[in-house]
Design a protein around this nucleic acid. Structure first.
Length: 158
DNA sequence: ATACCTTTGAAGGCA
DNA sequence: TGCCTTCAAAGGTAT
């Protein structure tokens, strides 16, 4: 029933109706149109995955809403890819980080507003959801307790 | 098969 | 209140 991604995430069959998942939908640029058009289909970005865990429990995973930079990334990634200089996501994301800073304030604000709408919609759809629900879903280097009991060990030095 | 890398921003917890 | 930590996307690379 569920589709598993490479990271072990699973996707609810209804998800493609809701969200932005470019991996599930045709590879058209997710935010190819103006932000207003993107906002008209903002429901795309809320992910409700039904995950099957090895213990036999089907568990729903609701992902975090995307922040402004993530929305910018999804819209701009394919442009960087088309330029063909970089292939690795890490390198592309470095470029996107620079482009983000190069954006004018008004251009950035479009993404901030869109991200705010995403969060509001997310709150309406999943009132009791907490970002902490997903803590420990990724296994990180040196993470001893995947239960998410203590987010105290820093792994990516930011 | 899966963690890592890399970015920014949001959110939660603790002192 | 401010700092720290984790996750959100993505996909090539490393283990």
């Amino acid at each position: 029933m569920e589709q598993m991604s490479s990271r072990g995430e699973c996707v609810h069959p209804l998800v493609p109706l809701l969200l932005y998942s470019d991996r599930l939908l045709p590879p058209s640029p997710p935010y190819s149109g103006p932000i207003g058009a993107a906002a008209s289909k903002q429901a795309h970005s809320l992910v409700a995955d039904t995950c099957y865990h090895g213990n036999g429990i089907n568990r729903q995973t609701v992902k975090k809403p995307l922040n402004a930079f993530m929305l910018f990334m999804k819209e701009t990634r394919h442009k960087v890819l088309q330029e063909g200089r970089e292939r690795e996501s890490a390198a592309i994301n470095r470029i996107l980080g620079r482009r983000w800073h190069a954006l004018s304030r008004s251009e950035q604000s479009k993404y901030y507003e869109l991200a705010q709408k995403e969060r509001l919609l997310h709150m309406q759809l999943y009132p009791g959801w907490s970002a902490r629900d997903n803590y420990g879903k990724r296994k990180r280097k040196g993470s001893q307790e995947p239960t998410g009991s203590g987010p105290r060990s820093r792994q990516n030095g930011k």
